[in-house]
Simulated scan of single mutants.
Amino acid sequence: MTEWRRWVAPLGWLALLLAACLGMAQLEGAFRWIEPDSRQVIYDRAAFLTLLGRHLTVVGVAAVLAILVGVGAAVAVTRERGRDFLPLVSQLASMGQTFPPVAVLALAVPVLGFGTLPIIVALLLYGLLPIVRNTLAGILGIDPAVREAARGMGMSGAQILRQVDLPLAAPVILAGIRTSVTINIATAAIGATVGASNLGDPIISGIVNGNTAYVVQGALLIGLLAISVDSLFARLTPTSAR
């Protein structure tokens, strides 16, 4: 029973998100109060559930790539042969987040064209820093005596990585992934400006047409999605790493 209660919050937020996607039209009266002079107050150019699926796909693909690149790079520079590159990797990851996603899109669109690919590139760069930083902190924070004990047991470098470093650093790494994904859920909305249809569509459409109701609808769903995902990670992350 206790284990089941841990999942009440994530499932509750997810249910609320799905209810909002499917029942947005039922809130027309409330949105009419926000935009009393608009002919239409419920965004209907695409189903909200469809936009949610596209949003999750973009964020999910970017997250998988960021995890592979970020964790892989951090692990490589914590090995004996790669330690000289540790400052370089840290600086490159920091630059990726300080570079505005809008600027990344502006540079990527002429090369990659309009659509989903440019926003995936932007989210990948923007989401690397928390993953790289936490992976480095997790691995470098392991007591050297633990590794020495593993070597004394005859473990190879690969075995120490798989059976000692990554398991012990996992809670800190997961916390970095949690931060990266949660940030990118909101950042992905700008993809609507380059033809990557997602939950940013109502927001951009609302801004262009001066319809605040559209903006609120998109922001509400993105907020619920971010809370749902963050709540899920909170249940997966040990208390000590939260």
Rank of each mutant, 00 (worst) to 15 (best):
W4E: 15
W7R: 15
V8H: 03
V8K: 00
L11R: 01
L14D: 01
A15H: 04
L17P: 00
A19H: 03
A20K: 07
C21F: 05
A25D: 13
A25T: 09
L27E: 14
E28R: 10
G29F: 03
F31H: 08
F31W: 09
R32P: 12
I34S: 15
E35R: 00
P36I: 10
R39N: 09
V41E: 04
D44A: 14
A47E: 15
A47C: 07
T50V: 06
L51Y: 06
L52R: 13
R54L: 13
R54S: 10
L56K: 01
T57W: 15
V58Q: 06
V58Y: 03
V59D: 00
V61D: 14
V61C: 08
A62G: 04
A62V: 02
A62Y: 08
L65H: 07
I67C: 08
V71K: 01
G72F: 10
G72W: 06
A74S: 14
P87M: 04
L88D: 00
V89C: 13
S90K: 01
Q91N: 15
L92F: 14
L92Y: 10
S94H: 02
T98D: 15
V102W: 12
V109Y: 05
P110Q: 14
V111R: 02
I120G: 04
I120F: 08
V121L: 11
V121R: 03
L125D: 15
L125A: 11
Y126N: 08
G127I: 01
G127P: 06
I131P: 12
L136I: 08
G138R: 09
I139K: 14
L140G: 04
L140V: 09
G141S: 11
I142F: 09
D143Y: 14
D143A: 12
R151D: 07
S156K: 04
G157S: 13
A158T: 13
I160P: 11
Q163W: 05
V164G: 05
V164H: 03
L166H: 09
L168T: 00
L168C: 12
A169W: 13
A169Y: 11
P171V: 06
V172T: 13
I173P: 00
G176R: 10
G176L: 01
T179F: 03
T179M: 08
T182N: 12
N184M: 05
A186P: 14
A188N: 02
I190F: 00
N198K: 10
N198H: 09
L199Y: 03
L199P: 06
D201K: 00
P202F: 10
I203N: 07
S205V: 03
G206M: 12
V208H: 13
T212W: 01
T212V: 15
V216G: 14
A219I: 11
L224C: 08
D230Q: 11
F233C: 08
P238L: 08
T239R: 14
T239H: 14
